[in-house]
Amino acid sequence: MAEALIPKIALPTLDPGAIGAAAPVELIEVENLSLFYGAARALKDIHFRIHERVVTALIGPSGCGKSTLLRCFNRMNDLIDGVRIEGAVKIGGHDIHGPDVDAIELRKRVGMVFQKSNPFPKSIHENIAYALRLHGIRKKSELDAIVEESLRGAALWDEVKDRLHTSALGLSGGQQQRVCIARAIAIKPEIILMDEPASALDPIATAKIEDLILDLKKDYTIVIVTHNMQQAARISDYTAFFYLGELIEYDRTRKIFTHPAKKQTEDYVTGRFG
């Protein structure tokens, strides 16, 4: 049945994950993870492993728990009252909910880009410098250098280099989002979590962000939540499909979109339900 599927989306002909002799390293291990908001169960027994330096997409209809899962990786769910976790999330072999783990330290190494861009009401330079100062980098020359490096890394330098000290809020939506990305990569995290980073942007800005992600994956591990399947197909190496809080299928992107193993996955990627 899977063979009869007509791929609805054009896939890149080279699947990056297929090349390479060594087996990809597993960086994030999710082990039987369940999450409860009070009595309601939002994540049901999630179990899978995310590889290093690839782009992993979490897809599924809205409300299926993908954003919730993403926020588990940097313990942003701690901010919500009444959240309870069973199971474990391990990064680099360490349980991030362990007793000696400092959530702040965790967040310095697992960065996040939000759905709606949220630059601080400060200048572009200050937005990034703030993150650096949190890490103890204070010398002006160092700050300036890293700010430039990050903005280049976010493909924004040329557009803003003459207005670094103007408010970041004066930029377009797509530019603001790239400031947020620059801010996130400035502190050189190992993992970048992206929660629907382009959903509020127009197609041109979206394309720029997607190119950026493909570029970033050389140095960072990226986990991206998206409800846009074409986007997932374009930029991700691995895809995990969620439905109603459960992980239905997780595999290389090419496989998920051409011959998925489960019918549910197939129905979703062919658009039979939203």
């Binding site: 940097n74 942003m76 901010l79 702040i104 330290e105 965790l106 967040r107 310095k108 960065g111 996040m112 939000f114 709606k116 949220n118 630059p119 601080f120 009401p121 703030y130 993150a131 949190l134 890490h135 947020c180 801010r183 996130a184 502190i187």
Partner: peptide, 12 residues
């Protein structure tokens, strides 16, 4: 969103 952004960067 400002608070969340700051916290996500590792601020206390």
């Amino acid at each position: 969103t400002y608070t969340q952004g700051a916290l996500a960067l590792g601020a206390s």
